[in-house]
Design a protein around this nucleic acid. Sequence first.
DNA 1: GGGGCCATGTAACCCGTTACATGATTGA
DNA 2: TCAATCATGTAACGGGTTACATGGCCCC
Lengths: 190, 190
Amino acid sequence: MNVKTLCLGALTLGDASGYEIRKLFEEGSFAHFYDASYGSIYPALGQLLDEGLVSVTEMVQDRRPAKKIYHLTNDGLQVFKEALAERPVRDKLRSENIVRLFFAEYLTEDSLQAVFDGYLHDFKAMSERLRSIDRSCLTAGRAFTCGMGLASYESIAAYLETNRESFFRSVDAAIQVSASPDSHQKKDES
Amino acid sequence: MNVKTLCLGALTLGDASGYEIRKLFEEGSFAHFYDASYGSIYPALGQLLDEGLVSVTEMVQDRRPAKKIYHLTNDGLQVFKEALAERPVRDKLRSENIVRLFFAEYLTEDSLQAVFDGYLHDFKAMSERLRSIDRSCLTAGRAFTCGMGLASYESIAAYLETNRESFFRSVDAAIQVSASPDSHQKKDES
DNA sequence: GGGGCCATGTAACCCGTTACATGATTGA
DNA sequence: TCAATCATGTAACGGGTTACATGGCCCC
């Protein structure tokens, strides 16, 4: 799945400009399962236009830059449905935060705390955002994925909070041990 | 963070070949927060060798292709620590599965069920794998991230299972409504 | 006056995936 | 016999990010 397909999907929710689609990825309904930047969205919309999968209307605004409102065509909807019908690839998570928690013993205590608390803060913020959505006026799919995001964010936030103390204690303990003179597992290099 | 850095991290866990590092991403400790393929791992190891961040020993084996065992140098460990000290970027999830659940009404019932059950199966398998790990012999960071992965996978699997019925019911209901003759929100295209 | 938001777009670059190339051994 | 596992590597290609380029309005 690429940004072009995601743009088609975004337009099934209603006509939108490239700027508005970007917001959808950044803080809207797509935020918890995909990301895309202007540098990919604008070229994608241009290509979709060339292929006739979207149409565009220029909206000149008062006291605002002109907007290009994109609209999904029937062809575009068909192409989107076909793309959805393909078998999905495995979810891919890339978490630099988890990498840092995994290698906690190679960070200073300050760095580790910054990572930990920043990470916890992210999950709380995302939970908050999802919790504030009124799911009763959403389609089945949107409500379901919203609830799923909420369930996973809340469980991670809870895990982080309940295990914070013991985690820092055991990292500390490990660092004490490795700093003592009788434990040099790492030998000299060639 | 790139594959080169992750390879350095992998080697802090012990000497390994490119093939073994790949397994770490595929089914080992890294599997639930990063991914990388041979096409990125082998070139990465080659570059790290040029830069003196790893050393290599060729192991000729009986009845097996020769192995190149890579070993982290002191320089490599330093570089890895410095990379970890940088501020992590936001976690990035790319989930084609969630995209499909989000747009459930554009899938056939069969496709949707295949996606749903495949997704649930993935989470159960990953939970199973993490649950089978004996955390008592892991470092603090590894045990903690293992527990975190388990908490999130289990909560998602539970969410999927408990909401399966009602989800399919409401998707069905929506499709019935949109198929009835008096609901054509989507108008003709230019 | 300065930062942030609105708004679009391009180009260079990075990086990783996919597919290809090779080949032996082991177990069903 | 056929698939899977072990084992390394390259090259073409795709795709997205970052940074650059531009500019006005609004609020503090």
